[in-house]
Amino acid sequence: MNCKITGTVVILCLALAAVSEGMSLKSIGLELRCQCIKKESRFIHPRQIQNVELFPSGPHCKDAEVIATMKSGHHICLDPNAPWVKIVIERILER
């Protein structure tokens, strides 16, 4: 009986630690999953784009993600295989 209570307390503590770690990662901007569901491949004029972020593939997502913040405030996922997006990525990496 005492072993069951101890085991339950240990499991609850581990679950709480896992949840709090996941929450702390999200609060510092690390997503635990892919952010892009739909990717845009059509050309978007650079004057409409305010910022571009490149997220390499990793444990959170198997695909590299390129997210453009538009001057209107919207976020658009860009297709990293589109020719014009490859040029944008090269310019970002050169900086």
Rank of each mutant, 00 (worst) to 15 (best):
N2V: 10
N2P: 09
K4M: 11
I5D: 10
T6Y: 09
G7R: 13
G7D: 13
T8D: 08
V10Y: 07
I11P: 00
L12R: 08
C13Y: 08
C13Q: 08
A15Y: 12
A15N: 13
A17C: 10
A17H: 07
A17I: 07
A18Y: 13
V19W: 14
S20I: 15
E21F: 13
E21K: 12
G22E: 06
M23S: 15
M23G: 12
M23C: 15
S24F: 12
S24C: 12
L25N: 10
L25F: 10
L25G: 08
K26N: 15
K26E: 15
G29W: 05
L30N: 15
L30D: 14
L30C: 13
R33I: 10
R33T: 14
R33N: 13
R33D: 10
C34S: 09
C34R: 09
Q35G: 11
C36I: 08
C36L: 05
I37S: 15
I37D: 15
K39N: 11
K39Y: 11
K39M: 13
K39W: 09
K39T: 11
S41T: 10
R42Q: 14
F43H: 08
F43N: 07
I44M: 02
R47N: 15
I49D: 03
I49C: 05
I49R: 06
I49N: 08
N51Q: 12
N51I: 09
E53T: 11
E53S: 09
L54T: 12
F55C: 01
P56F: 06
S57F: 01
S57P: 00
G58L: 06
H60S: 08
H60P: 00
C61I: 00
K62S: 02
K62D: 08
K62W: 07
K62H: 05
D63P: 00
D63M: 07
D63L: 10
D63W: 04
E65H: 04
I67S: 01
A68T: 04
T69D: 01
T69Q: 05
M70N: 02
M70S: 04
K71Q: 04
K71Y: 03
K71C: 03
S72R: 08
S72M: 01
S72P: 07
H74T: 10
H75E: 11
H75V: 07
I76W: 08
I76V: 05
L78A: 06
L78E: 01
L78V: 02
L78Q: 02
D79C: 00
D79Q: 02
D79R: 02
P80F: 03
P80W: 01
P80K: 00
N81W: 07
N81E: 14
N81I: 06
A82V: 06
A82N: 03
A82M: 04
A82T: 01
A82I: 02
P83W: 01
P83C: 04
P83A: 01
V85F: 03
K86I: 00
K86R: 06
K86G: 01
I87Y: 02
V88H: 06
V88E: 04
V88Q: 05
I89C: 04
E90R: 08
E90M: 06
R91I: 08
R91L: 10
I92Q: 01
I92R: 04
L93N: 03
E94K: 12
R95M: 05
R95W: 06
